[in-house]
Design a binder for these strands. Structure first.
Lengths: 200, 200
DNA sequence: CTGTGCACTAAGCAAGCGCTTAGCAAGCTA
DNA sequence: TAGCTTGCTAAGCGCTTGCTTAGTGCACAG
């Protein structure tokens, strides 16, 4: 498993990265509002005030984590949707990849999916746009498969919702060491989704 | 839609019910930790101290809401699983009912599903038991269908997880007035799940 | 009419919160 | 070496938090 600090290669200096990493742990475990700036700073081995050297506020730390997480999720989904193979194969890749991401990165994913309400309105708008693009990508891919006669599903928006739900909800219940592991879980979910869409 | 106050017919006096109802609104919208006891009390038309006449703490209010929500959810799932018809028909009823419940009662459901971490350890154990029983009920029903040769799904625990994920996640994204409405959404999700399980 | 208990309020306490201020050591530039 | 910048800490400010205390109004039993 990748070290959380490696998630943000462009964040400088290193102390800012360590603060973000300990904020991910705390936000994912206890939630944004139950986490104090002292928790974050001391877990990163610094005094409480050190956080404000690198971030203007606690909310800014959340936004930095949430935005980068949303960007990576969208990039992954887009890549799978634009990949090789027919729409059925691409749906499998997308579901497997998105599911695996929510399992391996479940701490970041939990913040991405369940701490939206804690974002400031302006910050929320930024990630809401990324979310809309993610959902549209999935809907368009299913529509393509339906148009090609590969899927028999009737209600495309509802099917897209269901697929995203399946993947997203993994962040809620997944714990390290759960069986099946992230990759195998992704494969099995991809099969379930293929059946759900009535893939031939 | 049922008035939230009618959710707890046995809670007395009426002021305690109103406090629980305004707590549901606040917890669902902003989360437990971002809600103050003053928010709850004033939204119920009382002074801050009135909450402590009926509940020993803010955490006790959360527990009362979460427990009754879990009990109702389990009752509904159990009734569907023990209902008439073959396992395939019962899975459809279960998914339709559970989905509809998460849509119509999405505020309570949001607390039930996403505020577990805010419960005190002893309170968490109580609801964790109800959750385990819910999950086992779904798993047993699928296993019955597989044994009867009605489903072709290979991995039963993963399939049960996927089904619960689909229903539970509705509480995250559903907003009043969304299309399709709660009942129709339930029906469509039941169809998707039937296909997912490879129902004949 | 009096006494009792229930539901409630006004006021406020101790603790913890996000964040600020003032200052210091180390490293770089000229 | 002087002066500036960067990254950090010690101390603490103003405010909000969950919850408590003391007391009030009122329904109702005797």
């Amino acid at each position: 498993m990748t070290d959380p600090v490696d998630l943000w290669p462009d964040v400088r200096p290193d102390a800012a990265k360590r603060l973000m990493a300990s904020a991910v742990d705390a936000f994912a475990e206890r939630g944004f509002h139950a986490t104090t700036t002292r928790d974050i700073a001391t877990a990163a081995g610094m005094s409480p005030a050190a956080l404000y050297v690198h971030f203007p506020s606690k909310a800014a730390v959340l936004f930095a984590i949430s935005r980068s997480g949303h960007e990576r999720a969208l990039a992954m989904v887009s890549a799978a949707a634009a990949g090789p193979g027919d729409p059925a194969a691409r749906v499998r890749d997308l579901v497997a990849g998105f599911t695996t991401w929510h399992a391996t990165r479940h701490r970041v994913a939990r913040i991405v999916q369940y701490e939206l309400h804690a974002l400031r309105p302006a910050d929320f708008e930024v990630v809401a746009d990324l979310r809309r693009r993610t959902e549209r990508t999935v809907r368009d891919l299913i529509a393509e498969g339906v148009a090609d006669g590969l899927f028999t599903v009737a209600d495309i928006p509802t099917a897209a919702r269901a697929i995203l739900s399946l993947c997203v909800d993994v962040a809620r219940w997944y714990t390290p060491g759960a069986k099946p592991g992230p990759e195998e879980l992704g494969r099995r979910y991809a099969e379930l989704v293929a059946a759900m869409l009535g893939a031939r």
